[in-house]
Design a protein around this nucleic acid. Sequence first.
DNA 1: TTTTTATCGATAAATTTTTCTCGATTACAT
DNA 2: ATGTAATCGAGAAAAATTTATCGATAAAAA
Lengths: 223, 223
Amino acid sequence: MINKPEFSIPEPTLRRLPRYYNYLKELLKSGREIVSCTHIGKDLDLDPPQIRKDLAYTGIRGVPKVGYQIEVLLNSIEEFFGWNNMDEAFLVGVGNMGRALIDYQGFRRYGFKIVAAFDNSPDIIGKTFGGVEVLPLSKLTNLCSRMNIKIGVITTPDHAAQEAADMMIAGGIIGIWNFAPAEIRTPEGVIVQNENLATGLAVLSKKLQILKQSGKFRQEVDQ
Amino acid sequence: MINKPEFSIPEPTLRRLPRYYNYLKELLKSGREIVSCTHIGKDLDLDPPQIRKDLAYTGIRGVPKVGYQIEVLLNSIEEFFGWNNMDEAFLVGVGNMGRALIDYQGFRRYGFKIVAAFDNSPDIIGKTFGGVEVLPLSKLTNLCSRMNIKIGVITTPDHAAQEAADMMIAGGIIGIWNFAPAEIRTPEGVIVQNENLATGLAVLSKKLQILKQSGKFRQEVDQ
DNA sequence: TTTTTATCGATAAATTTTTCTCGATTACAT
DNA sequence: ATGTAATCGAGAAAAATTTATCGATAAAAA
Ligand SMILES: NC(=O)c1ccc[n+]([C@@H]2O[C@H](COP(=O)([O-])OP(=O)(O)OC[C@H]3O[C@@H](n4cnc5c(N)ncnc54)[C@H](O)[C@@H]3O)[C@@H](O)[C@H]2O)c1
Ligand SMILES: NC(=O)c1ccc[n+]([C@@H]2O[C@H](COP(=O)([O-])OP(=O)(O)OC[C@H]3O[C@@H](n4cnc5c(N)ncnc54)[C@H](O)[C@@H]3O)[C@@H](O)[C@H]2O)c1
């Protein structure tokens, strides 16, 4: 890897934490107030020491023989990710996927909200989805810097992804959540998070292939 | 990890391969016929030896000083994943995300096709999206086993995910691609691939947070 | 009160994954 | 032809991550 930031938190840990969060949120809802790593491990099919280590990254401490208070744990994860202060984002490409993301309220929990959407199709410009009006692409860069938006979501067709990224970066965006299966070139200091759904599909189908060949093995898998 | 199948292929490799594939497909389109790992590494910001090792898992061999023939490489990856023979899948929960997936033709490339969709809402049952008619849930299990479907996609609300999974499994499904951020309990021999989008979002926002604090670092990130 | 048991934190060991090294191979230039 | 440079494959080394171990602690039981 040529470009590797100084990251003290292991990325696998970073990826597991939201899962714990969801799980704990449900657990709290179900009436439980305290939980141990052993218990979590059983439900999530993970090793308790790993869970303990992951949770420790958020700064939390458990009590021997007892475990963790779920509410405190949830707060600790929220704090760790900074989900308390909302990140406002722009989205480019209001097709099927774009609309799904705009409509979806579930990301609020993670301090994430799409506040404006852009498209180049006259058929879509002017329409409103989930309370967000679709604006012409030409307004993207300017509005972006005026509103001081730092996160952009790309849901354009693949061939338009680079162009969308360029406009976002020109507007001051430094974090791009890219759903197009396309490589985006960006200057230093811009983070691209590729959300390539085909990856999960490929992993699943390969595992299935192996399963079919070599006799049954066990379930469970993360993203 | 309690349940760990005998997997000879590293999962990170499995996750990088579709990315190579997309990239190489574009490269071929652009007129290039041969490529070296050094070249790929520059575009994808990965180390050449790693790429070489990843590609070797598909059984391909390169030529020193030259590299790989892109077309052969693409075939090798297709073969490796078995993308040549189509996997037919069922989908449950025809909301925003479900419709996006049904409409999307891009997964054909990976030997994946949604052939039937199910919902419990009378408003949606009977409608057609992307040539796929929405059927009532009650028909799922039976049709599933009759058509010998092995892969199911869950895009229901979180609270309905387990129920959907149970019906799928009753119908003989052994691979579940789950978009609901919920834990699904399955019997042994069923593979669950969780596609939790919040994971990517959390990783992005955490990296951004670190970036903002500790001065600029570099871009690039995979899913 | 004392013993037993579950769980924690810290650290060590094992495993997995990435990165490096080096000899071999091939194209291209001299 | 011969030498040079780019790239490969295989295996070693390094780094990261996961898993195991162990003493400490607190709750519950005896
Ligand atoms: N739909 C899915 O399930 C799915 C799955 C995996 C990946 N993706 C990827 O997500 C992206 C969007 O997919 P989709 O299904 O929503 O596609 P879509 O065709 O439904 O939507 C694309 C939208 O982008 C707009 N657009 C086109 N060119 C543009 C440009 N230059 N600038 C701004 N907007 C532009 C179009 O007007 C349209 O509204 C694609 O890259 C696709 O590969 C989608
Ligand atoms: N939309 C997004 O961008 C997004 C992002 C991340 C995760 N998700 C997850 O994907 C899932 C679907 O999201 P969505 O935005 O498409 O929701 P949605 O509300 O648009 O669609 C849900 C669909 O499921 C159907 N449904 C409800 N109960 C059902 C049941 N018991 N059996 C079968 N069908 C049932 C509903 O009729 C509806 O058509 C949710 O779990 C959500 O958390 C969505």
